[in-house]
Simulated scan of single mutants.
Amino acid sequence: MSMDVRAAVAMDAAPISHLLATAIRHSCTGVLAPDDVARLVGTNCSLPRLTAEIGIPGGAPGWLGWLVVAEPDGRIVGAAAGGVPGASTGEIYTLCTAPDRRRRGIGGALLAAIGDRMRPLEARRQQVTLLRDGDPALAFFTARGFTGEGRRLVRAL
């Protein structure tokens, strides 16, 4: 199944915020304390922050912007953000899919697209930091060649 990955636009900020909050709650509720889950949602899903980040792709050193996958009806079902903050290393800041749309190629399409944006900036590897120990995303990333200990994973691009 082919995925249409595109750069996020201003009107995507609220749907991205909702998607991130849903993904964080889905993977952290029952594992982290409710206050910790609320703090993660508050920090990572801030609408003003997302709106500002969408408005500056390529405008900040190393920042590559937000990418999204939307269904034909416009529902955002996947989102990713990344950059190349240091020499030869790309960083995946966020990559998530709607819990009801997992295992359909959305995450893989986003990961490939963000890698395609990192290569021209001479990134030779990608890194990601998982939200928590035992994060359900660990299986996704290790299946795609990421290795590491704890929450920090890396792979060659």
Rank of each mutant, 00 (worst) to 15 (best):
S2Q: 12
S2W: 06
S2P: 14
D4I: 12
V5I: 14
A7F: 12
A10Y: 11
A14M: 15
I16P: 12
L20W: 06
T22Y: 02
T22F: 04
R25V: 13
C28M: 14
C28E: 13
T29M: 08
T29P: 12
V31W: 01
V31P: 00
A33E: 14
P34T: 15
D35Y: 06
V37L: 03
R39C: 14
R39P: 01
L40H: 15
V41N: 11
C45V: 08
C45S: 15
P48H: 09
P48K: 05
L50T: 12
L50N: 10
L50Q: 11
T51P: 11
T51M: 10
T51A: 15
E53N: 12
E53S: 14
G55F: 09
G55W: 09
P57N: 08
G58C: 06
W63M: 03
W63F: 13
L64Y: 02
L64N: 03
L64M: 10
W66A: 05
W66S: 07
W66N: 08
V68Y: 02
A70L: 04
E71H: 03
E71I: 00
G74A: 07
G78I: 05
A80L: 06
A80V: 15
A81V: 00
G82R: 01
G83H: 05
V84P: 03
P85A: 05
S88H: 00
T89Q: 04
G90H: 02
I92P: 05
I92H: 02
I92S: 03
I92N: 01
C96Y: 04
A98V: 00
P99D: 06
R101V: 03
R103L: 14
R104K: 14
L110T: 04
L111W: 10
L111I: 08
G115V: 02
G115I: 01
D116V: 05
R119W: 00
L121C: 10
R125Q: 14
R125A: 13
Q126Y: 02
Q126C: 11
V128Q: 06
T129M: 11
L130M: 13
L131S: 09
R132F: 05
R132K: 09
D133S: 13
A137M: 10
A137G: 07
L138S: 08
A139T: 09
A139R: 11
F140D: 05
F141G: 05
T142L: 05
T142A: 06
T142D: 04
G145W: 02
G145L: 01
F146H: 01
F146E: 01
G148T: 09
E149T: 13
R152T: 13
R152W: 08
L153R: 04
R155L: 06
A156H: 08
L157A: 13
L157H: 02
